[in-house]
Amino acid sequence: MEKRVVFSKLGLPILLVAPQIVITLVFFIWPASQALYQSLLLEDAFGLKSQFVWLDNFIALFSDPHYLNSFARTVVFSAATAGLSLGVALFLAAMADRVLKGATAYRTLIVWPYAVAPAVAGVLWFFMFNPSIGILAYLLKGLGYDWNHYLDGTDAMMLVILAASWKQVSYNFLFFLAGLQAIPRSLVEAAAIDGARPFKRFWTIVFPLLSPTAFFLLVVNIVYAFFDTFGIVHATTSGGPAQSTTILVYKVFNDGFIGLDLGGSAAQSVVLMAVVITLTVFQFRYIERKVAY
């Protein structure tokens, strides 16, 4: 049954949806169209004159090895961040699902990192891994690994991945836990009687039933890694060393506001916009059609 409210006049409904539409227009459509327009312009470094260049900015972008490099790094970064934060969250949720005593306290503690601002999370990990004063860098040195994210691009990448995942674990944890608790206990019990050991039960019964949640989170996490990690990168590595952690969203900022290549930067944001729209459409399509039972 679908409930429909029918308005006799047009005035009230327009008034009701107006705030939403205005907000969308001012904060999304307008800047987005500005970016679209600017991505077609070539502007001088002082912002005094500009020239319409059609798709030249995009052509330049995709023939720039630095940009393509950054693209590849972003893919690695997102995959690693999403994989790590989803894996850890799933593990913690599976454990929390069994906890009986102190469950609320445990859950609250796990959820805390989500309340931490990205930049603060970045600084936190930055200090822990600081080559001269960081506790974790010190411990790693004890194990014979000379950690230095100032000089080593791989170390720097691992640092931002760690910081970015750490923050996202809480969010994923909440969804996984809710998903786990929605699975009827009798299903797991039936599987136990059917001769499946805990590990097998998890992969053949629990995980498939959790897959709509997992898929939703995968998309959310990729979007997060693509777009919401600017603060973390900025506070820890500033994209370095030697651009080894310059992911796309950081490059937009770097090229636009530091390098003052406004047209190129706008073109980069348009590409990012295309990515997020694709992901979102994919998610809606797929989630509603395929993964639901």
Binding site: P184, S186, E189, A190, A191, A192, I193, G195, I205
Partner: peptide, 16 residues
């Protein structure tokens, strides 16, 4: 449960 070689039918059937 796996080692007891029994089968159970649940009230809500518990089908996968």
């Amino acid at each position: 449960p796996a080692d007891r070689n029994i089968a159970m039918v649940f009230q809500n059937y518990a089908l996968y």
